[in-house]
Amino acid sequence: MKRVYALEEYCVGCRLCEINCIVAHSQSKDIIWAFKVEEPRPLPGILVEEARPISFGLQCRHCDDAVCIKSCITGAMHRDERDTVVCDTDKCVGCWTCIMACPYGAIKANENDGKVVSKCDLCPDLSQPACVSHCPNEALIYVDRG
């Protein structure tokens, strides 16, 4: 399946991927509304890991053998019809077992409601994830590496 891969050597640590992830998952899809008006503001599904000069955008790898799915006690974390690993927020009880299980640290607690996790959903409504199309230095690519 197509996944987002980070090219560490070109990541400039600007975090425009995080910002545009938030916009893409906002209600208005408008950057100023998303940041200045909408409450609660969505959490980014991508996180820039940084120890300068090294940095890269990290998000859910949508693992073939996803330990988050195995560890989920309610069946909220599941693989959808696009093979994307997503969380059904209605089923999630906020136990955060998936957060502890994820080997990449790519799942985060949603402190807005105390339970539901925030993670990359590969932007199902867009032709390619917002983080990839907005990366100014082509440090994120969306390809099928098998």
């Binding site: 400039v12 640590g13 600007c14 975090r15 425009l16 910002i19 950057i31 100023i32 940041f35 200045k36």
Partner: peptide
């Protein structure tokens, strides 16, 4: 227009 995202700070 500023959303305090700090992209300018980091760049």
């Amino acid at each position: 227009r500023c959303i305090q995202c700090q992209v300018c700070v980091r760049q």
